[in-house]
Amino acid sequence: MSTARDQIFAALREGFKGRNDAAAKVGADARIARREPNLVPARGKPEGRKAALAAFTAMAEEASATVARVNTMIDVPNAVADFLRMHNLPMRAVLAPDPLLDAARWERRKTLELRKGAAEAFDEVGISLAWRAVAETGTLVMLAGANTPTTINFLPETEIVILPADRVVGCYEDALAPLRAKGGDGRHSLPRVVNFVTGPSRSADIEQTLQLGAHGPRRLHIVIVDDAA
């Protein structure tokens, strides 16, 4: 008895009768390997860092994210604490264990209580690091990995994302291109998860009326760091 897979391919090939299968394979393989953007809208090609940052900020705010800007990593803990205080949130957060975030020297801000790791059900605030940000639509690109657990992006009610300014690119394709080579460990085609995040979670499922904070974060705060190196 033939397998479901065999039956499906037999049915497909029935529909492709008369097609040159060898040429079709060559054409499809070439298409997969082409790896160049199809049509990128003009707004996905901002000129220079300054324009990209301005476009990213405007679009992210339009998607109901809030954006703060600081000079260096050292300034990040104060920006985080200011945001938490303004929204009357606890000074407690789960922090992505990325070495770059250590440069913030969080311990200097004593009121801020941090735990490094993946997010748990009880975490109200999560802090993570963006891999890239896309000016086209104000979209953050977050990767799953040992240093940036995915749960931080979804479990806490408030998410704060640290974004080094030089990570802002024009379009989605700009963010994906370097990932194809990366893959994490050389054995995979991509990191396990790539999350494109545009604003906080929302739903319009009740009477077509938009509300923020459906299952993911209610608030998304982005701290842009001009000189993160």
Partner: peptide, 21 residues
């Protein structure tokens, strides 16, 4: 919308070192 809030690309299962997934 200009872009949906979450567009997620998933490739395989949890990898060595991953804290979740």
């Amino acid at each position: 919308q200009e872009m949906s809030v979450y567009t997620t690309i998933s490739t395989g299962a949890k990898r060595p070192g991953d804290l979740d997934g």
